[in-house]
Design a binder for these strands. Structure first.
Lengths: 98, 98
DNA sequence: CCATTTTTGACCGGATCAGTCAAATAAACT
DNA sequence: AGTTTATTTGACTGATCCGGTCAAAAATGG
């Protein structure tokens, strides 16, 4: 139970919109349905490959979903850090000038 | 040999400025001197506790060094990702509105 | 050269994390 | 109510990641 996950919200919303069961998504990714549930709740992160599969399966823009996934990973890493915002801004600067 | 590390540059510069040997820093942190060398080259990351020790040892601002350390960790995670910049900006937004 | 310092590679142990299974809980339907 | 189906949760596992060490190799410099 973590609940900070953008990707989780996205795929859960999409799944419910299409009236699909966890089992269906799980079959498409060839994983346990419990794992899909955990993706949606953010207590397991999908692999990069699974993000691509999820995007295809739900007909979502791959770059958008990948961005959400990456952002979740970063956020998880820095969320309790006092210097989080400064660090993120520093990285942004570095990426921009690359 | 990675060379993207801000923290590594900082402590190496500081160490040389004060004419200290790796062995001295290593003793202060109670670790192998090889590890300190790797910190400087960015192929091992110090722990959070070690960052504090390094800041104290070199009389550097702890928040500054911690920021560099965090930024290095983030950058390492996203540097080869196409969506890195978008993700980082998203995290920044989330941190700002927290 | 020789002594000292730094760097590098191989390896180890612990932590982390995706993944599974089964039990527990929650929805949904009759 | 009870029953079935769907979801969530916890415990556990195996593989990968990463801090750390040691010793050898490569620099540095006197």
């Amino acid at each position: 139970m973590s609940r900070t996950e953008a990707l989780g919200y996205i795929i859960k919303r999409e799944r419910e919109k299409r009236n699909l069961l966890l089992r269906h998504v799980a079959a498409a990714l060839d994983i346990d349905q419990a794992l899909v549930s955990k993706f949606e709740h953010g207590d397991r992160m999908p692999t990069k490959e699974q993000v691509v599969l999820l995007a295809n399966y739900f007909h979502l823009n791959e770059n958008d979903l990948m961005t959400a996934w990456l952002a979740d990973k970063i956020y998880t890493e820095v969320q309790y850090e006092k210097m989080a915002l400064r660090a993120v801004k520093l990285v942004e600067k570095k990426l921009t000038s690359k």
